[in-house]
Computed example of a mutant assay.
Amino acid sequence: MARKMLIDGEVKQASQVEEEANFDFDLFVIGAGSGGVRAARFSANYGAKVGICELPFDPISSEVNGGVGGTCVLRGCVPKKILVYGANFGGEIEDARNYGWEINEKVDFNWKKLLQKKTDEIVRLNAIYKRLLSNSGVKLYEGEGKVTGPNEVELRQLDGTKLKYSAKHILIATGSKAQYPDIPGKVSFQFFSH
């Protein structure tokens, strides 16, 4: 059974609509986190012409920074694990002394070095995600994307330039932000969400 679509009040076969439309992309993805990158790569691997946009990368998170790889990879899971692993060694060294390890030198901790290790790792991961997109043939745009019509995406680049693209399909993969209800006793952890 052929799929039918209602276009401007007229019922048309899906194949008619596809033949009539000439899009810049088969798929345009807004958001290059883990989900958006995977959808873009797999679509491109199946032959689709794919574009994707993401806010520019910066090791320090803000409302205007993002990065290919997304929140978990660049802001949450991976940096957290590096910081937790780094923090655990102090206690493990003390425990080791209790189990016969003789540590004769003073053990110091360098906070800046741990933060640099975390930054180096997220920079490395951001580059890997970009390379995965490029190797799949996905066109990456840095900037803020928004849907401006049924098959239209507007991209505001870093310098403020606005570009418009048409896409047969648009995927919004921007993730979400925690919302804190206005209730007595609430604790705001907003500084952790960045």
Score class of each variant (00 low, 15 high):
Lys113Leu: 08
Arg131Val: 04
Arg124Trp: 10
Thr119Cys: 02
Thr161Glu: 06
Ser176Val: 11
Pro184Arg: 13
Lys130Phe: 02
Gly143Lys: 01
Asp120Ala: 03
Gly175Ile: 01
Asp182Tyr: 12
Pro150Ala: 12
Gly185Thr: 08
His169Gly: 01
Asn126Leu: 02
Asp182Ile: 11
Val187Phe: 06
Tyr99His: 14
Leu114Gly: 01
Ala127Gly: 12
Tyr129Ile: 03
Val123Glu: 10
Leu115Thr: 00
Trp111Glu: 11
Asn135Lys: 12
Gln157Ile: 05
Lys130Asn: 12
Tyr165Val: 10
Val187Thr: 09
Asn126Ala: 10
Tyr165Ser: 00
Leu155Tyr: 06
Leu132His: 12
Val187Glu: 12
Leu171Gln: 02
Asp120Trp: 08
Ala173Phe: 00
Ser166Thr: 15
Lys112Leu: 14
Leu163Asn: 10
Lys164Phe: 11
Lys177Pro: 03
Tyr129Trp: 11
Asn126Ile: 03
Leu132Tyr: 07
Lys186Leu: 12
Ser176Glu: 03
Glu142Asp: 09
Val123Ser: 01
Gly143Asn: 06
Val138Gln: 07
Glu152Met: 15
Asn135Gln: 14
Asp159Met: 02
Ile122Glu: 02
Arg124Ile: 08
Leu155Ser: 02
Gln179Phe: 13
Asn104Leu: 12
Gly100Ile: 13
Ile122Ser: 03
Ile128Gly: 02
Gln116Asp: 07
Ile183Gly: 06
Gly160Trp: 07
Lys146Leu: 09
Gln179Asp: 10
Leu133Lys: 05
Val138Asp: 01
Asn110His: 13
Leu158Tyr: 04
Ala167Ile: 03
Thr174Ser: 04
Asp159Val: 07
Lys130Thr: 09
Asp182Thr: 15
Asn135Met: 08
Leu158Pro: 03
Glu154Ile: 07
Lys139Tyr: 02
Gly100Arg: 10
Tyr180Trp: 09
Ala127Thr: 11
Leu163Met: 15
Ser166His: 07
Pro150Asp: 13
Ile103Arg: 00
Lys164Trp: 03
Lys146Phe: 01
Ile172Lys: 05
Glu102Cys: 04
Ser166Leu: 10
Glu102Met: 08
Asp120Tyr: 04
Val187Cys: 04
Gly145Trp: 04
